[in-house]
Design a protein around this nucleic acid. Sequence first.
RNA 1: GGGCCCGUAGCUCAGUGGUCAGAGCAGUGGACUUUUAAUCCAUCGGUCCUGGGUUCGAAUCCCAGUGGGCCCA
Length: 489
Amino acid sequence: MPSEQEMIQQRLDKRARLLQAADPYPARVRRTHTTAAAVEAFTAGGEVEGATEVTVVGRVTAQRVMGKAAFLDLRDGSGRLQLHFRRDVLDDFEHLSLVDLGDFLEVTGSMFRTRTGEVTVGVASWRVITKALRPLPEKWHGLTDTEARYRQRYLDLIANERSREIARSRSIIVSAIRQFFLDRGFLEVETPVLQEHAGGAAARPFLTHHNALDRDLFMRISLELHLKRLLVGGFEKVFEIGRVFRNEGVSYRHNPEFTLLESYEAYADYHDVAAMVEELLGFVAMRVHGTTEFNHGDVSLSLKTPFARTTYHGALLEHTGIDYRQYPTTAALLGVARARNVPVSDGASWATILDGLMSTFVEPKLVQPTFIFDYPTALSPLAKKKVDDEDTVERFELFALGYEIANAYSELNDPVDQRERMEAQSAKQVEGDDEVEVADEDFLVAIEHGMPPAGGLGIGVDRVVQLITGEHSLREVILFPTMRDRGDE
RNA sequence: GGGCCCGUAGCUCAGUGGUCAGAGCAGUGGACUUUUAAUCCAUCGGUCCUGGGUUCGAAUCCCAGUGGGCCCA
């Protein structure tokens, strides 16, 4: 019999023996203090031995048994507290042999300080409130196997304080973002995940099927087109924090589902949005770090306003010497890319090649937060063209630590222009490029009713968490990242 | 997409062609009434990721696959 099975069987036997005395999984437990509050109450009360009675609950994380006495460590959400069991005090002392690391206990007793100085509960009564059947990771080295940490995140959270800290930071970040927008009078909304067309971005969607309607539906790849419908409907400031799904590879940089924030503000333009993004990131950093300047390893990052600003054309010129306007045809630009050893897939469009140059030579250099303004029209079918230059649109992206954090436009609201550009994208799809914007007739009809001028914003929330926590891998900031099949079950 | 590294007990890891694959922690049995990585004695526990191949002999070498990580694009 495999040893893991043996250990489980031993614990099942203990569970059965516990059951003879009392249910080791009671529905109701008593708790007068968290472990942190118990220590606090003891010290606040002048550390008088026997004066502070507490009932605490938590998980057993260590056992030091010495014949007629035992010390156990109990951990709850607030911290850790030592328990002291004595045979001369407890008539059920022998039942401690039925307790394993990982079990949950409810313990009542009075606080004292041991001669080695540790605040401890002298246990007067106790019971098991959850019997665990499987062993936890090793107490000293914990769980380091990356794969196990992702696949069994609960074990990672038990074993690694850093993982708990990232999860807490993420929660603070998301609630800070929400508060930031609510404070500015934005309305938080929820729009459909299941859509007839997966629009608003260029990405492969997931396809699913509605049985009752006998109809194929796509999972959304962005929030954009429905939020814009709400601008048509008269809301002036809306935002959504939502999960989107892109049917692409998995790696430390990409997860097929990720969290996107989008906001739309009527009567604002992309410069207004840029100013708001600066404030937003500073606000979030203050909430987590208490400062806008912090270090990640040897990189010191400043989210202090204002961020650096450059243009798409200027940034590419600066980092590569390439003036892309000199290469207006696909063939010409392809020659430039090949000369620089940038791999280009067959049939790549002019816009795709240009994007490849940017992501190869410019983006990795952008460590401190940097706005890149004014993108080529061909890359941005939903952004408004510049007044004096129809090959360029009012769009910026924000980069930091070498990756994209935010993307924003002065939103295209001319329905005629919008229709032409969506149809041009659809034509590319017919040519075989499956990562293009899809024409959404229902959306076009909506904006034909009139969508006010607006500034729109998209921010990858997972990326913001990476930026603020300094985590290199997306899989560290997503609690349950998508993993491949282990293939053994 | 390409390159490199890794996968051995529940966990953390040794073991680079030669007896029956090891240690620590965890588990089990014993000693121990202020320990805290408790200590001491004894002991159980293995699909060496999977499948092929080379060899008298493979955890170890080779090939393929698979899962993970890192780097490059």
